[in-house]
Design a protein around this nucleic acid. Structure first.
Lengths: 260, 260
DNA sequence: CGTGGGGTTGATATAGTTCAAACTCTGTGG
DNA sequence: CCACAGAGTTTGAACTATATCAACCCCACG
């Protein structure tokens, strides 16, 4: 059933996993797997016998609706635990999206058993759960945003935050535009257009199709809360350069017909 | 700061609270408060020193965006724990929406301390957290739905599920249309129109502005996943009969302008 | 050299927002 | 008891952001 193929994890990866969690009591139960993009870690409605953590790479948690549409509820990145519930079956499927992704798998029952006697492990689990809750709530707030521009901008900021590894303002998006669209509940075309618009206005720049550099963080942040202060949205196809000098003030763009 | 006014909770309420949780170790730390609609339990950015649980009544967790718009991320109902994180400040505010609501307040630090030594309490907290995660994920899926009809229908089903207390198919909505709108990321008008359309097609009936009866659960469920099988959405004001005979049976209700 | 998946761009249709107004219900004060 | 006010709800009409349909480009891969 499991598309994962177990491997003897190289020492470096094991060390990496160990570094992710302060104490190893829980890590002793982990099994490491090397995955490629497209691998399915668990299927929707599988029994939830394991929890998983991304050691390196990236994944997506998604549900298929009756009509065949897809909803992505999370992009677990390095360090994130995913696919966990206390009982029953997985409400979502977990799929790897980046090549060379390493996943740690924890047997749920045994971890919970361990938690009964080891308060430290119990505390770790609580923290993991609370982190997960925070991530979900942040996401709720993101989805609640109305305009496509707000969603995409907020998404970029979120990714920038979470990929803090890299240098300052460069973001690597491990997921496709389709993934982003399903995550933000938008059409692919809208995602693409919005990114283009942000680029054209000098808010971001592309160093590759999936590599973004934030050129003007203030503008991006403004776009993420665009309706504030009556800011005019960046329009797709509107190429006048020179955004207004005043941050957070309005972007005045010739012929942009801003109807605030 | 706190708009709550502490009261000596009547015995019945205390018993009620006790019944909500299997064992009382954690409940001993609780303080009960009686609230009215409009009371604020905690403000956005307040330090998160307490967790709360609805003993009876209803609340909402919401964030205010820079532009003054409101996002509701949860409607905690009877039994639900809300407003908890491990550290830092509340990312949302917690507000009571129903009169005669009783809230139990738990001091975070002391509960966590208790969890260190009492595995049972630790387990309870885990369960509460996982429940919360599940509720959030369900909500994500709901928000990801595209059409207003899917959202509203799914919302009604969710409420019916959670208010299971009442008889079969009658739902009491403790929140206003505005609350629902902010919860589903829709305009109030859209919520109102959608409810009207559902009523006009005999899917639901109103026994009061905030009292709904599910007339045809199958239809409601179909509307919640409307795009499946090419089902035609219920149109506001669309009273034409003669729907296609096709799959999932479309709605046939000639001019049934029933105003319940 | 073709094939296919991902990405972008264009044109058009539509669902949902926005603006505006009226209606209901509840409470309050004369 | 009635008039009035205000919040919540519903309805109408116009507008627009986004989905949808349809090409087309680009690149990796067989």
């Amino acid at each position: 059933m499991d598309l994962l193929y177990a491997t003897q994890a190289p020492a470096s990866v094991a060390e990496d996993a160990a570094r992710l969690v302060a104490h190893g009591a829980m890590e002793n139960l982990a099994t490491l797997f090397d995955c490629r993009a497209g691998d399915t870690v668990y299927f929707q409605d599988d029994r939830a016998d394991y929890w998983y953590r991304i050691v390196s790479g990236a994944a997506r948690e998604c549900a298929l609706t009756a009509d065949g549409r897809r909803q992505i509820v999370d992009f677990p990145l390095r360090g994130d635990v995913f696919g966990f519930c206390t009982h029953g079956t997985h409400p979502f499927s977990g799929e790897i999206i980046a090549d060379a992704t390493t996943v740690a798998r924890y047997p749920r029952r045994r971890v919970e058993q361990l938690a009964e006697t080891d308060p430290e492990v119990a505390r770790q689990i609580r923290e993991i759960a609370f982190e997960s809750i925070e991530r979900l709530q942040t996401r709720m707030a993101l989805l609640g945003r109305s305009s496509a521009q707000e969603k995409v901008s907020a998404f970029l900021l979120e990714m920038a935050e979470r990929c803090a590894a890299g240098p300052e303002d460069s973001i690597v998006l491990p997921m496709s535009r389709y993934d982003i669209a399903d995550y933000l509940a938008l059409a692919v075309e809208t995602v693409s257009r919005t990114l283009t618009a942000l680029r054209q206005h000098g808010v971001i720049a592309f160093t590759g199709v999936r590599q973004v550099r934030i050129v003007d963080r203030a503008l991006l942040a403004a776009a993420a809360t665009a309706r504030a202060a009556g800011a005019a949205p960046f329009r797709h196809g509107d190429r006048s350069g020179s955004p207004s000098p005043a941050v957070l003030r309005r972007i005045q763009l010739a012929g942009s017909g801003d109807r605030s």
